[in-house]
Computed example of a mutant assay.
Amino acid sequence: MKKNFFTVVILVVSLTTMVGCGTRVSKDIENTGNVNQPSNIGSDKNPQGADITYVNEKYGFSLVFPGYWQDQYNVEDVHGIGVRIHHKPTWLKNGAGTLFQITVFDKSKDEWNTQVKTAVETIGLWKIYENEKEVLGFSSPTDVQYIPDDKLLSSKYMKMENDVLKIVETFEKLN
Rank of each mutant, 00 (worst) to 15 (best):
L136Q: 14
L125S: 04
N94D: 15
E121V: 06
Q101H: 08
Y146N: 15
V120T: 01
Q48S: 02
Q48A: 14
E134I: 15
S155H: 09
D110L: 13
T142S: 10
I147C: 14
Y54G: 00
K151N: 08
Y146C: 15
Y129K: 00
V164N: 02
Q70R: 04
D163V: 00
I123M: 03
K117W: 01
G80M: 13
Y146R: 11
S62L: 02
M160A: 13
S62A: 05
F65G: 01
P89K: 11
D143Q: 11
G97M: 00
Y73Q: 05
F61Q: 10
V104G: 04
E132G: 04
L152E: 12
I147M: 14
E161D: 13
G82M: 09
F65P: 08
S140D: 06
E76L: 13
D143N: 10
G82V: 09
F100H: 08
E76Y: 15
G60A: 08
G60Y: 02
M158G: 01
G42I: 13
N40P: 00
P148R: 14
H79R: 14
K127G: 00
K156Y: 04
S154Q: 13
D150T: 11
V135R: 05
P47Y: 06
S140C: 10
Q115F: 04
T103V: 09
P47I: 15
D77R: 10
I85V: 11
E76G: 07
R84Y: 12
L153F: 08
K109A: 08
K159T: 03
L136P: 00
M160F: 12
S62N: 10
T122S: 12
L152W: 01
H87N: 13
T122K: 14
N40S: 12
G95C: 10
G49N: 03
F65H: 11
K88V: 11
D149P: 07
D150W: 14
W126Y: 12
D51Q: 02
T118S: 11
N162A: 15
N113Q: 03
G137T: 04
